[in-house]
């Protein structure tokens, strides 16, 4: 009996050693609908080959005019795919943009994209940064020209689509497959909600209760956004960015911006469309006492949100349960 057991252990050890030398072939599980999340807006079946092509493209600096900037330059995985530490991002030739690079996560649920919702289809989204003169300053036409002459792209396109042909739709759809796969649903909050063992501390629980009373009307669970556009009273910045107004030309949309999701805030500072707040405390101080009245200020924020210092701390402790360590380290999403 003992001998048999030892044999088994030996065998297992041997197997383990083997598997360590040669990593087991990666099993691609595709897009998984997280428990408790609404149905995804993105419904195209995700294939391993298109996803991998998309990942390669996401980290490809040839998407920019001088081959220096990739999507991953301003959407860094360790920062939950935003540009940590930058109020606005610097693109090509160190030209500065006007808005804070938003995190790329849970985009499969987005109905619109960008801070102003100007893009309505994930497949059309990459065109904006690629062609923006202060971001990548390139044309799709020229990117495709470069990729056609760059191995292994012809082979990767063939694996993904059955032929080496490269066109706008194929390139964009591959990028979408990668972006749609960037799902963050492994935070402590998720484990608590799914009753997988972890529980909130008393302080986190108090913060959650406050959050539900004072924040969740706009930051709806479980994505922590209702996907609306609102003026949250931070006031016009020096460049007078009017937010959604230039997209719809409705005066009511002046200074309205997307209600951002609140997952992974520990990795995505600074906050707001222009990155003006460096800490969550600064954000809550704004909601509690810094709201500027404007004609388009969201009615829910008139007069601000009453919050004591203790309550702010509790809300911050709750918000920290939304950080997803697995997401920012997931090897599937790395360069």
């Amino acid at each position: 009996m003992i001998i048999r057991k030892t044999k088994r252990i030996l065998l297992l050890t041997l197997l383990y050693a083997c598997s360590k030398k040669e990593p087991a072939p990666e099993t691609f599980t595709g897009f998984k609908q997280p428990v408790g999340f609404p149905s995804a807006v993105y419904t195209e079946p995700i294939t391993k080959e298109k996803f991998e092509l998309g990942r390669r493209l996401f980290y490809e600096p040839r998407l920019s005019r001088d081959n220096t900037i990739s999507c991953g330059s301003c959407h860094i995985q360790s920062a939950a795919f935003t540009h940590h530490g930058h109020d606005v991002s610097h693109g090509i030739d160190d030209r500065l943009g006007t808005r804070n690079s938003p995190p790329i996560m849970n985009l499969a649920w987005n109905r619109t994209f960008m801070w102003d919702g100007g893009v309505f289809d994930i497949d059309l989204q990459p065109i904006a940064p690629i062609t923006n003169p202060v971001e990548m300053d390139e044309t799709i036409e020229n990117v495709l020209k470069k990729l056609r002459n760059t191995p292994p792209y012809p082979a990767l396109f063939k694996k993904a689509y059955g032929s080496e042909e490269m066109n706008t739709a194929r390139m964009m759809k591959a990028l979408s497959q990668f972006m749609a796969m960037l799902v963050s649903d492994q935070s402590k909050y998720d484990s608590v909600m799914r009753k997988q063992g972890p529980v909130f501390t008393a302080e986190e629980q108090a913060g959650y209760r406050l959050f539900q009373q004072k924040c969740s009307q706009c930051h709806q669970e479980p994505l922590f956004t209702d996907q609306s556009f609102r003026n949250n009273g931070i006031g016009a910045g020096p460049n007078n960015d009017e937010g959604r107004y230039p997209v719809t030309l409705h005066p009511a949309d002046k200074y309205r911006f997307r209600v951002p999701g609140l997952r992974n805030l520990a990795y995505t500072a600074p906050y707001m469309h222009d990155g003006r707040f460096y800490s969550l405390k600064a954000v809550l101080d704004h909601y509690a006492g810094g709201i500027q009245d404007m004609p388009t200020l969201d009615p829910l924020l008139k007069g601000g949100i009453a919050l004591t210092e203790e309550e702010k701390q509790q809300i911050i402790l709750f918000l920290n349960t939304l950080n997803d360590k697995n997401f920012v380290k997931d090897k599937r999403f790395s360069e």
């Binding site: 100007g118 893009v119 059309l124 065109i127 904006a128 690629i130 062609t131 923006n132 044309t139 230039p246």
Partner: peptide, 11 residues
């Protein structure tokens, strides 16, 4: 951008 007929920022 010079001759394009598409707005990327506002599809």
């Amino acid at each position: 951008m010079e001759t394009g007929m598409y707005w990327g920022w506002n599809s």
